[in-house]
Amino acid sequence: MISKERVRHMTKLSEFENEESKACQKATQYFRRDYVAMELIKSFFAGTIAFGLLFVLWLFYDMENLVKKINDMDMIGFGIRIVMVYLVFLAAYLMITYIIYNRRYTKGRKKVKEYYNRLKRVSSLYREEENISNTDDWEV
Rank of each mutant, 00 (worst) to 15 (best):
Asp72Gly: 11
Phe16Pro: 03
Asp34Ile: 14
Lys107His: 02
Cys24Asp: 04
Asn134Phe: 06
Val7Tyr: 09
Asp137Pro: 00
Glu20Cys: 02
Val140Ala: 03
Ser133Ile: 09
Ile76Val: 11
Ile99Thr: 05
Val140Pro: 00
Leu40Gln: 12
Val140Glu: 03
Met1Lys: 05
Gly108Arg: 02
Lys4Thr: 09
Lys69Tyr: 03
Asp137Lys: 14
Leu119Thr: 06
Ile100Ala: 02
Leu54Asn: 14
Thr11Gly: 11
Arg32Gly: 01
Met38Asn: 11
Glu5Thr: 08
Cys24Ser: 05
Phe78Gln: 11
Val122Gln: 04
Phe16Arg: 01
Arg104Gln: 08
Glu129Lys: 15
Val85Gly: 02
Val85Phe: 07
Asn102Trp: 03
Asp34Ser: 14
Val67Phe: 13
Asp72Tyr: 04
Asn18Cys: 09
Ser14Tyr: 08
Gln25Asp: 12
Leu54Ile: 12
Phe55Pro: 00
Glu64Asn: 08
Glu130Gly: 07
Gly79Leu: 14
Thr28His: 01
Lys120Cys: 05
Met73Lys: 15
Trp138Met: 10
Met75Val: 09
Ile132Asp: 12
Gln29His: 11
Ile132Lys: 14
Arg118Gln: 14
Glu139Phe: 07
Val83Tyr: 01
Thr11Asp: 06
Phe31Ser: 14
Asp136Pro: 00
Ile132Ser: 08
Leu40Met: 04
